[in-house]
Amino acid sequence: MSGARDHSHDHGHGHAPHPFQPDIEDAPLTHHQLLALAVGELLVDKGVFTGYDLRRQIEDMDSRSPASGAKLVARAWTDAAFKDRLLQDTNKAAAELGIDAGTIPIMTVENMPDTHNVIVCTLCSCYPRLLLGLPPDWYKSRAYRSRMVREPRAVLAEFGTAIPGDVAVKVHDSTAELRYLVLPMRPTGSDGMDEAALAGLVTRDCMIGVAVPDAPDH
């Protein structure tokens, strides 16, 4: 089963069903949960930030989703000049569409007929959160971080993505200041679709590079 297919049914906003989380209030707090609550309270008491600041940050992160990245991709597919600006300066191009991509520079890497891009952070889990939301667990896992640089095609195959031998696979290890977004190729059969519909084809996994957009159903 292709992860890309699961996501495209939800038009890029949904995920595969998540495991049930037991109600936290019924269980004792763990050491690290206590630490999180205590540190938060102490920093508010000391005036480092307010409870309102904290709530607003959480709300802001909750509002981030792959829909932002998908909007950029869909616009790039339909507007060649925008695509150039996206590749030149992703943060600035995002602002054109009313998306706040923050101050950490994001680099968009474009898939071509002869090159497929995929992103990993072997040293930690750097990820363009402001354009895609929080990363999935697997992106942060030991298996992904260790194997993607060494055997990208095998890992891509596990995601159901087969890249032909005559297409180069380019792995980007996000080691320093930049975050990366993959600009997938526009799928065949998508002519005449409007931007919103095109954005619906672009899943989070396509913008990490472990999937490619499905051709639209007719």
Binding site: R150, E151, A168, V169, K170, H172, D173, A176, E177, L178
Partner: peptide
């Protein structure tokens, strides 16, 4: 990079280095 790399010769890896 990898003596036993199981892929074509045109596969590459790009990283940021100081």
């Amino acid at each position: 990079i990898w003596p036993d790399y199981a892929g074509p010769a045109h596969d590459t890896l790009e990283v940021e280095i100081y």
